[in-house]
């Protein structure tokens, strides 16, 4: 089965790149400030401010990728397969801070972000993705596995489009690659395989 990457976004400490080219950041270290990126991209999504940093970066990458275009599929036929290393560890550490014996005020708003897959949930809400979903953890991106698993879901007719990628954030370092996978290609489409994902990740 031929699958294609028709859109993508790479967001890392080196900056932001998409299928449309590089996003021009007025300040070099702006990529470390999700709030500033929100303003730069002129987003209007008040929920953004309530999210933890991993989710903020997830939404920023999603916005760069989809550019506010509605997804032309039924919600239930869109899958989302994401992977990362640290999961919610950054927020776990913040929540742990609210559990001091002499200052015990566990924060419910932090706790609900202490799961690796919440960023996937936020992306599902934002882009109305209701189909097959999976969040896996690995030391480094396992693009072979992501391709294998995503392709299997297409072959088994469980999805018709899929948001696939690596999404990681820890100690101020965002490291994200999101790709949009479809069965139809346009002129700029790339084949969905290990080599494409590896070259986009650089």
């Amino acid at each position: 089965m031929d699958l294609f990457v028709t859109k993508y976004c790479r967001l890392s400490s080196k900056g932001i790149n998409t299928h449309k080219g590089g996003v021009n950041l007025p300040l070099n270290d702006m990529v470390y400030d999700p709030q500033a990126l929100y303003t730069l991209l002129q987003l209007s999504y008040p929920k953004f401010f309530k999210m933890d940093t991993l989710c903020k970066y997830g939404i920023l990458a999603g916005e760069c990728l989809f550019e506010r275009n509605p997804l032309s599929y039924t919600s239930s036929e869109i899958g989302i397969i994401l992977s990362g290393q640290h999961g919610s560890l950054d927020t776990d550490e913040q929540f742990q801070q609210t559990l001091q014996p002499d200052n015990f005020f566990p924060s419910p708003a932090l706790f609900v972000y202490t799961l690796s897959n919440i960023v996937m949930g936020e992306l599902c809400i934002r882009y109305k993705i209701k189909g097959e979903n999976l969040f896996t953890v690995s030391a480094t991106p396992d693009y072979d596995l992501l391709c294998q698993y995503t392709t299997a879901l297409f072959l088994q007719k469980r999805i018709n489009a899929c948001l696939v990628g690596w999404i990681d954030y820890y100690q101020r370092q965002p490291d994200i690659l999101l790709v949009w996978v479809e069965t139809t290609s346009d002129t700029n489409a790339l084949p969905f395989n290990y080599n494409t994902l590896t070259s986009l990740y650089i």
Partner: peptide
């Protein structure tokens, strides 16, 4: 080999079985 890991909140266990089901189809 390298183990795979699913971390999908409270559905992780069922998802991990689902992932095994999906990957076993390929005969690898």
């Amino acid at each position: 080999g390298t183990p795979l890991i699913v971390s999908n909140a409270c559905i992780s266990g069922v998802q991990a079985i689902g992932m095994a089901y999906t990957l076993l189809q390929q005969g690898k």
